[in-house]
């Protein structure tokens, strides 16, 4: 082949395919193959050790959809995901803005905010479980010391106290990652813009509304999408604190899935449920991305 000519080993039309192919093969191995396996199990009669015994069509799906615990867990998963993803943004944005300012000790402050990220979520959840113990927990003794409580609260004994606490723990462990993304976004905004705004007499609030928020949008979107994927399927916090109890009242879909599959041995239904969850999450994200891109096209 002579240099300077536009040409390649493969014909022009096939080039994109050739470039996509290695990535596709890798994704297929890691994602598609297990999904196909799940698909097969979900339409089969399976014994509790995962050995397939026959074809049952959509029976497993029907059984999952008819289960009242499924609907309750679905609703709770919605609250869980919106609560944590929203909470992490609400807490993370101010924290990121503060950490973006130049102040003495900023390096240490950044490390402290990021530290929870370095600890395994399961460990964090177990420590919180101890802290929320009704009789010997730090939380009760702290709140009593401050005079907020007169009597001990058994935080994990009922969903009305357990589930909000679990969401708070979820926010706590999601904030470091969110702050990291948002800090990246903030440092990409040129200082010149703020300087220009100040010269024009804009207040701090106006700079925030008109410069920071619009320019941060892509980063907020990334944080929302990645956190949603992660939180929707997050297992350790709920499992380590209440195991979805009492009486399934703090189950989200993924803990319910675990019970179906590994405690009750109903692997067929568990496979069906996990495919439903996969489809649901995919649909939500496609919808979200579509909404964003339409919003951008409108501008």
């Amino acid at each position: 082949m002579r240099p300077g000519r536009t040409g390649s080993v493969v014909p022009r039309g096939l080039a994109p395919i050739a470039l996509v192919l290695p990535g596709f093969v890798l994704a297929a191995l890691i994602i598609l193959w297990p999904v196909l396996q799940l698909g097969q199990i979900s339409v089969s009669e399976v014994n509790r050790f995962g050995q397939i015994r026959g074809f049952v069509g959509l029976e497993n799906y029907a059984a999952v959809l008819a289960d009242p615990d499924f609907l309750a867990s679905l609703l709770r998963t919605g609250i869980w995901t919106v609560g944590i993803v929203g909470g992490a943004i609400v807490v993370g944005l101010p924290v990121a803005i503060i950490l973006h300012q130049d102040f003495y000790g900023r390096g240490i402050a950044r490390v402290i905010v990021m530290l929870p990220w370095a600890v395994s979520i399961t460990m964090t959840a177990i420590v919180w479980r101890w802290a929320m113990n009704g009789e010997s927990g730090m939380l009760n003794s702290g709140l009593r010391g401050l005079g907020v409580l007169d009597t001990n609260v058994t935080w994990l004994a009922q969903a009305s106290t357990a589930f909000p606490m679990q969401i708070l723990i979820g926010i706590l462990v999601t904030v470091p990652f969110t702050v990291t993304i948002l800090l990246g976004g903030l440092s990409s905004i040129s200082d010149d813009l703020y300087e220009a705004a100040r010269l024009e007499g804009a207040s701090t609030w106006q700079s925030f509304r008109r410069i920071t928020v619009p320019l941060m949008k892509p980063f907020l979107n990334i944080a929302v999408v990645l956190n949603t994927i992660y939180v929707f399927n997050s297992f350790p916090i709920i499992w380590a604190t209440t195991q979805g109890g009492p009486a399934n009242s703090t189950d989200i879909l993924v803990t319910y899935l675990y019970k179906l599959g590994f405690q009750f041995g109903r692997l067929g239904e568990a496979s069906a449920l996990s495919l439903l969850m996969f489809a649901l999450l995919l649909a939500l994200l496609v919808l979200y991305v579509a909404l964003i891109s339409r919003g951008e096209a409108d501008r």
Binding site: N133, G134, E135, T154, W155, A157, Q158
Partner: peptide
């Protein structure tokens, strides 16, 4: 003990 639904067997044994 108050809040029995928060107590596993190990928790009661600790008490």
């Amino acid at each position: 003990q108050p809040g029995v639904t928060g107590y596993s067997r190990e928790d009661v044994q600790n008490l």
